[in-house]
Amino acid sequence: MENIVHGVFLFLGLITVAFVLLITVYLIIAGMPAIGELGLFNFLFGKSWGPTYAVPEFGILPFILSSVYGTAGALLLGVPVGFFTAVYLAKLAPPKVKALVGAAVSLLAGIPSVVYGLVGMLVLVPAIRSIFNVPDGASLLAAIIVLSVMVLPSIINVSMTALEAVPKEYEDASLSLGASPIETYMRVTVPAAKSGIATAVVLGVGRALGEAMAVMMVSGNAPNMPSLFESVRFLTTAVASEMSYSSGLHRQALFSIALVLFLFIMLINAALNFILKHRKEG
């Protein structure tokens, strides 16, 4: 009896590994044929995407660059806001404020991405159109702003945990040397928590890179090379927007895009693990 139970639990434990293998194998099997047919270089660095042209073109450089710029932009806006909010909440905020804002941040994390997309579509896009006087507000900028809000919760929560874990003695030592509380938090606590804050940023990269629906609703979805006020398509939205009607080589190329996205995410996971390992040793 005990042996059977042990076997069952071993099986359940290994299911997770099986799922990861399943996803990896499926993406590789589905994604390789198109890359093989089109050539890796042409596929990754081709500047034009037009699967329905008379001579179909399958270059995904616009998607890769849009994803990279979009993620970088979202972090450029989101990290400072998230970081300073986290320092305030972890170190300065009165308990009541901390509890209330903490609840607000977890709400931000729980709001479905389509709701962000909807508000972005009806508030942000028209606002960008009228403020910057461009023909269509659905643009890379709109996607960046929406993503910057969506990465806030993970940046705030993870940084806060890291800041709170810094030993009190470090701060006491700094305070007793005559540094003010603010100087202590910014120059002692923050550097001591830097690997945790780095983790927060990397998690934010993962979230921004992987978001599909909200981006799809605000970015206009045209396969242009990225430009702030131009309609763009990310790697995620490239997969999502054409999947329902594609076939043949076109469909296979979409799987290849998913494979590229998957590799990006795996790279980020590796970075995350590297930071975590470093922290344990350090």
Partner: peptide, 28 residues
């Protein structure tokens, strides 16, 4: 080692974007 592999797998799963789940779910 087994524990490490399983935990790594779980971490990997939680980092995969949902659109990729959708795609693999559709295929599988």
């Amino acid at each position: 080692k087994v524990v490490g592999i399983i935990e790594y797998a779980a971490e990997t799963l939680s980092g995969i974007p949902s659109i990729i789940y959708g795609l693999v779910g559709m295929l599988f």
